[in-house]
Design a binder for these strands. Structure first.
Lengths: 192, 192
DNA sequence: AGCCTATGTCATTCTCCGTTGACTTGGACA
DNA sequence: TGTCCAAGTCAACGGAGAATGACATAGGCT
């Protein structure tokens, strides 16, 4: 809203930079407000550009959203996780402050927004399958791969959402208990 | 959309019944489509009423949403869950089609929609804690109540989101495996 | 029966927002 | 320096959907 991604003095007619600024602003706004709640005029203003340029560069709001979505789904590091310590690592991360890594949460928040909007949800499936579910399936292996992969993804998502919407994180023994139980739950899904 | 909550022949000028029908339709539409994606005309049509009545009875879309939220967040349902069969019941529901039999999960889906919309999210925090998390805590009891309650809510949310994202539900043995594992996971959080 | 008010209907208006197309300007190149 | 195209600006259009208010009517009450 008030924060402007672009410097106060506008770029010097650099189409690529303008396009990138619009895309960055779009990712931010879509992640914060969802497809319907994000307005092209706001995005353009945030990027220090004119709303008409969105049409020129992205072909409309749909195109901008698709571009932002594609850009938000970063290559994953799923295969690099350590299967031994996976549960505890994730659990510890989830027990932390939600605002500690706001930037890293943007892409997820974007996905969550897209997923909860019936009109944009269909756009997700292909990308999510390819970038997340397939690597997860390969990584966990064992029996009931499909079921375990979906369940793992579900738990992961749920923990992230809870992390986003909760106002105060757990402290003390309750936090330890949360980590302990969460770690065990995740780990049980990873081990065959 | 096509399903009409009210009987084919309209009520006989019963304001309370009309109000209730509108509220029921609103809960359904808001849960499915979110605040922005739910249209008053659709809600009114679904309730077998005129859109103008929404204004009369609820003072506008905001008022209707607030009323539907308040009604959705009522704690009555939680205590009614059967602790013995809880895991399997929820798991079976989650394994079904996203648009089938969501009646019991309307309130959860409503919360998810409200939580991901910046304009409606502020309405949630206090109400969710008081009327949602507290009953859950009371219901599950036992040790580590706070941690288990949060974990349970997280898993629930994650399963809901996964339902929204996926385009095709599981079938056959994979479905059975999913239900089995999900039921066990949920049940382990409920039993002390 | 005959009013009278609450209930329901309809057409219209208002507002917001995405989109469009004509217009202006900067700057690269000859 | 002059030309020309891409980059950027501006105002207006159109559709969608919420809100409004005038109008119609059912049905209780006297």
């Amino acid at each position: 809203m008030t924060t402007v991604l672009a410097p106060e003095r506008s770029r010097k007619r650099d189409a690529d930079a303008t396009r990138a600024a619009i895309l960055a602003a779009a990712k931010k706004h879509f992640a914060q407000s969802g497809y319907d709640g994000a307005f092209l005029r706001d995005i353009a203003a945030d990027a220090g550009a004119d709303a008409a340029l969105i049409n020129r560069y992205f072909g409309g709001k749909d195109g901008l959203f698709a571009a932002a979505l594609k850009d938000s789904i970063a290559p994953d590091r799923i295969a690099q996780w350590d299967r031994k310590t996976f549960g505890r690592e994730v659990a510890t991360m989830m027990a932390g402050h939600a605002h500690a890594q706001v930037d890293r949460m943007h892409s997820f928040q974007f996905l969550l927004q897209a997923a909860t909007n019936p009109t944009t949800a269909p756009l997700l499936n292909e990308a999510v399958q390819e970038r997340f579910m397939c690597p997860i399936r390969d990584w966990i292996g064992g029996d009931d791969v499909e079921a375990r992969a979906r369940l793992l993804a579900s738990v992961f998502i749920g923990l992230l959402v809870e992390r986003l919407i909760r106002d105060e994180p757990l402290e003390g023994p309750e936090r330890d208990a949360f980590i302990e139980r969460t770690a065990a739950m995740l780990q049980s899904l990873v081990e065959h």
